[in-house]
Write a protein that binds this DNA or RNA. Sequence first.
DNA 1: GTCATTTGGTTCAAATTGGAACGAAGCCAG
DNA 2: CTGGCTTCGTTCCAATTTGAACCAAATGAC
Lengths: 167, 167
Amino acid sequence: MTEPRWLDEDEKAAWIAFLSATNLVNRRLEQQLKDDAGLSHTQYEVLVQLNAAPDGSLRMTELADRLVTSKSGLTYQITQLERAGLVGRRSCPSDVRGVFAEITDEGRAVLRSAAPGHVEAVRQSLIDVLTPEQLTHIAAGLGEVSRRLRAEPRCPSQSTQTAPATQ
Amino acid sequence: MTEPRWLDEDEKAAWIAFLSATNLVNRRLEQQLKDDAGLSHTQYEVLVQLNAAPDGSLRMTELADRLVTSKSGLTYQITQLERAGLVGRRSCPSDVRGVFAEITDEGRAVLRSAAPGHVEAVRQSLIDVLTPEQLTHIAAGLGEVSRRLRAEPRCPSQSTQTAPATQ
DNA sequence: GTCATTTGGTTCAAATTGGAACGAAGCCAG
DNA sequence: CTGGCTTCGTTCCAATTTGAACCAAATGAC
């Protein structure tokens, strides 16, 4: 095998910044939400997704995909939230196996009260730190990163060429 | 309290991209390292830090700070790595309480063999997806984000004015 | 020197996470 | 219809993570 393409100075700087920024931001938000609303970031995101869904509910698998978490992890968190009365489970009429997670009124209320503090923390730790230019570049760059990683479940050799429907 | 400053469309796009990109990239690297080298990302980072340190060793607290992890979490991981023979513990001559984590020759060897695959994964999932322009903006923006979060252990009121030297 | 405070690291318990295994259903070719 | 394969969600288990409690030692004020 050939010598790997190591990262040059700029690339390394970007990677290190990415790594530490993500860890630090996550840690900060986790702490803020726990302190101010008694929610983990995962739980908060569950509420956000359900609240934004047309009828306040989503299938378990769909929700797990959106949160980028494992199915078993989601099962656990939904159980916790259910216990807390913030979401409920409904079965799916068209598929007996299916389960909808559905946000409750109390869930919406908790979300509503947690949101301002959360948004403020997001601003302080990330958004307001960036220049408008950096913001747009990050949105575009990381948006593309997300799109690719979501599309590519497993393709080691497929270079950066978009790849037409791997079959 | 006044109406919070909600995120506008661009800000929301950046935030969502940031959130999902970080989750997806983390998941991808975690999986690649586990599959190809039997290491967790945390463990890999421990080896990277120690390997780069002048004498192959760092104090526990210093290392925990660099990895953005808790002290107890680091204690656990160092124990694991020690068990695997990749690092060792040395006591600190100038401070009886202090402990140095030190990478072993085998640790360096494992790191050397894991690095190419890891770098390739970092390229595929992040670096090579970005344009050079996006790369520099991300390095600068997220670098600043890291710097601020590291500097500010707890200052709710300190508005975004603090740092004049944004560039 | 002496006491109070901080610091360094570990230990402990509780929460979370992810993968593998599972049972129940859907789906489809033949 | 029927066997074979995939999908859905849960359960189970092992690994990891974190904060709190702790002990010992360093530091600082007097």
